[in-house]
């Protein structure tokens, strides 16, 4: 591992420590969460991507529905197929989809925000005002990303599953109860935990990657756009790697 990678990990840990410190202080009543910034971040992370995420989730649901319908006639155990598809949606598709959307919207926005603040000396302005720039920028954003990633993952699960089930009911006459029963038979509580924990870990990684890339912006304008593109690439790599680790560690 080269020195720069080690420095980046150190910086990420430093950012994480500062955020945890902020949350602890908020819980102890020593600090206040900037509600205005937090609400803006919630809007940016969640509401701004919700329409497009819903459309993509419907498209994914339709594609899965059509593909399943084509294969269903050749399979003797439709329940097994439906259960496996449902499991794949809940454990893999939905967290990945949410992770990519959050990285593309909030990760890049955070990197650009921090980078611009460094470039325009706004970060210095915060420091001279006695405010920790990490508390001001990453603190509320990370919290918003964690909350919204959870909510968006549940929403995406519901939309993809509902669209696929609706298509199969309309086109292949598969009753919803069969879909439901096969899902219930295959899913256990561990799978549900994984489906919820994964998007949270993705959100944490995206926020730290964005913060590190934003902090590393030099005093050149093009450095901000480089930080944005680097954040997207690093975030996709981190999401895929984490997903792979989950597959090896928990089988999903």
């Amino acid at each position: 591992m080269n020195t720069k990678a080690l420095e980046n990990i150190g910086l990420a840990l430093f950012v994480l420590r500062d955020c945890l410190q902020l949350y602890r202080n908020i819980l102890l009543g020593r600090s206040r969460l900037d509600l205005k910034v937090f609400v803006d971040d919630l809007r940016e992370v969640g509401l701004s991507i919700l329409p497009l995420l819903t459309v993509v989730a419907i498209i994914v649901g339709l594609v899965i529905g059509v593909q399943t319908e084509n294969v269903l006639g050749e399979v003797n155990v439709p329940g097994l197929l439906l259960g496996s598809i449902g499991l794949a949606i809940i454990k893999h598709f939905a967290p990945l989809l949410v992770g990519l959307f959050v990285a593309g919207r909030s990760g890049i926005a955070l990197a650009v925000r921090i980078g611009s603040m460094v470039l325009n000396r706004e970060a210095d302005g915060l420091i001279v005002s006695g405010i920790n720039p990490i508390h001001y920028t990453v603190g509320p954003m990370l919290l918003a990303m964690l909350l919204m990633s959870f909510a968006l993952a549940v929403w995406t699960d519901l939309i993809v599953l509902a669209t696929a089930a609706l298509w199969l009911w309309l086109e292949a006459g598969i009753p919803w109860s069969l879909f439901q029963d096969s899902l219930r038979g295959m899913l256990d509580s561990g799978d549900l935990v994984i489906s919820v924990v994964k998007p949270l870990i993705f959100a944490l990684l995206i926020a730290l990657i964005a913060a590190v890339n934003g902090c590393r912006v030099s005093r050149q304008v093009e450095a901000v756009s480089k930080a944005a593109s680097r954040t997207m690439i690093d975030a996709i790599a981190a999401i895929q790697l984490t997903n792979l680790l989950f597959v090896f560690a928990f089988g999903g």
């Binding site: 325009n120 706004e122 210095d124 302005g125 405010i131």
Partner: peptide, 25 residues
């Protein structure tokens, strides 16, 4: 207190919000 060369006000905030920043704590 420090007044920096080239300015360090936060463009995303209004003038009064910028002034309030040091009082937050």
């Amino acid at each position: 207190g420090m007044v920096m060369q080239g300015g360090s006000l936060l463009n995303g905030l209004s003038v009064i919000e910028n002034l309030i920043l040091p009082l937050r704590a």
